[in-house]
């Protein structure tokens, strides 16, 4: 817990807190009408005391989907190699000269290499801005032949929600993309949209996030619920996502934490054994 690297494990040690949280949220909503001041105060103290400590804190329940990454397990066990392709859009990129180095795909590579020193980890970012799920699904064959990934992290949904693509078509595109990747022998993790409090009154993310959850469930693949994870950081005060400014610091820190969350999810779902932990 002393180094920032162990932030995710720290959460794992108290999975109950996540359940308590959801429960308390539910209760708070019910009684909020009458007891708003009391509950607000109690919840605020509770949140402040328990969750504002580690910036990368993520409740374990958000990261453990219960589905396995079989190809990843196999690749690591057999060849001591792991190739991950990130297929995504603008929110997988960061602008600026040090953007590529600090966006979450590059950070994920760094974190995994540190945690799995015996494994040759490679993370390729294939993110391009302004792509819908359908655009990305069409490119999956090429991703498979070009990169031969063991795992594809597919981040999508934002542009679809902005353009109000028919949610049914969106779901069909997801379904097609995941099916292609599975046939090509790659594991898949879906990643949904960013939590963006300033714009969320304008973008109806709900139906798209729901469809991503459903597709993940049906194909038995993990969903990295970026929406809920970032929402959680905002609620606990870990990050001020309402902030405005040209400054890149917040964006880089958020991407770093997202990378740590995904690394935790991969290690957990593929049943790998991080060695840096043992070394400590």
């Amino acid at each position: 817990m002393k180094t920032p690297m162990t932030a995710c494990e720290a959460v794992d040690a108290r999975p109950i807190s996540a359940f308590t949280r959801v429960f308390r949220r539910a209760m708070a909503g019910h009684d909020g009408m009458r007891l708003i001041p009391a509950f607000a105060a109690a919840l605020y103290l509770f949140a402040g005391a328990a969750f504002a400590t580690e910036p990368c804190d993520i409740p374990a329940s958000l990261l453990s989907g219960g589905w396995d990454l079989k190809h990843v397990t196999e690749a690591v066990a057999k060849d001591k190699r792991l190739t991950i392709a990130v297929v995504g859009t603008g929110s997988s990129l960061l602008a600026g000269p040090d953007g590529p180095r600090s966006a979450y795909p590059a950070r994920l590579e760094a974190v995994l290499r540190q945690k799995l020193p015996a494994v040759d980890v490679r993370v390729v970012s294939l993110a391009r801005s302004r792509m819908t799920a359908e655009d990305l699904a069409r490119g999956m064959d090429k991703v498979l032949t070009d990169e031969k990934p063991d795992l594809v992290i597919w981040q999508t949904g934002t542009l679809d929600a902005i353009r109000r693509i028919d949610p049914e078509e969106f779901r069909a595109a997801l379904d097609e993309g995941v099916t292609t990747l599975h046939k090509g022998g790659a594991d898949v993790i879906l990643m949904n949209m960013q939590y963006s409090p300033r714009t969320d009154i304008m973008v109806p993310l709900g139906p798209y996030a729901d469809n991503m959850r459903v597709v993940a469930q049906q194909h038995e693949i993990p969903l990295f619920d970026r929406l809920a994870v970032m929402r959680n950081w905002s609620d606990t005060g870990a990050f001020d996502l309402y902030a405005a400014g040209k400054d890149n610091v917040l964006a880089q820190r958020v991407h770093d934490c997202i990378a740590r969350g995904i690394a935790f999810m991969i290690i957990d779902a593929a049943h790998l054994h991080p060695e840096s932990k043992a070394a400590q």
Partner: peptide
């Protein structure tokens, strides 16, 4: 906010 470049397409 550079974090939300994509969302600003709205």
């Amino acid at each position: 906010n550079p974090l939300y470049a994509e969302e600003m397409n709205i």
